[in-house]
């Protein structure tokens, strides 16, 4: 029950110091070669897996409509397609954004992610509040925290009106939460 499968290797007593030295050399050589093989295979593998860390996404402006498509004082959900998405992203290339037209030429685009844990906030038009279904975070129409656990206001994307179009800077999921 308590015996190990492999007895500990021991050098036969008849071996000379040169033979022992030779054995140690082969031991070290073999370990070094295993290390080299691991590096040859492992480094590209790890690099491939962690590559998304370092993937620079160019900031792009995407058109989300014409100013007249949006009423002043109203907040609506718009769909933005990530221009840098992978070809097989399908519907996951889309993201939802809450767009509010504040005045004639002023728009605010809010990330739909609650700053508490990222759940999608919903807009209650009559109450003029954003409400999160997960833990009940509430935001005012300008994105400021009204109640609940969110530590920060809703994340805002850059919006501009250019060439008669409302444009928004490419949507990414903001990892906004901190300790």
């Amino acid at each position: 029950m308590n015996t190990s499968l492999v007895e500990s290797s021991s050098v036969p007593p008849t071996e000379t110091p040169q033979e022992i030295s030779r054995r140690r050399f082969f031991e070290k050589l073999s370990i070094a070669l295993v290390g080299l093989c691991t590096a040859i295979i492992g480094l590209p593998l790890v690099g491939f897996i962690v590559a998304p860390f370092f993937r620079k996404v160019p900031e792009k402006w995407v058109t989300i409509g014409k100013p007249d498509d949006f009423q002043i004082g109203k907040t609506v959900a718009i769909t933005v397609t990530d221009p840098s998405s992978l070809p097989w992203a399908g519907v996951t290339a889309k993201s939802g954004v809450w767009l509010r037209r504040v005045s004639e030429d002023s728009f605010i685009a809010f990330s739909a992610n609650c700053t508490h844990l990222g759940c999608p906030v919903r807009w209650l038009p009559d109450a003029e509040l954003f409400m999160c279904p997960c833990h009940g975070g509430v935001y005012y129409s300008d994105g400021k925290v009204a109640a609940g656990p969110p530590p920060l206001p809703l994340f805002r994307y850059d919006v501009q009106v250019a060439n008669g179009e409302v444009q928004m800077k490419q949507a990414i999921v903001p990892i906004s939460t901190t300790l």
Partner: peptide
């Protein structure tokens, strides 16, 4: 993302990039 120092990296690793996608 709340993990100190490396949180943002871990979050990007989980998402496979800056956002959900392919």
């Amino acid at each position: 993302g709340r993990i100190p120092i490396i949180g943002d990296w871990v979050a990007r690793f989980i998402l496979g990039g800056n956002t959900i996608g392919g």
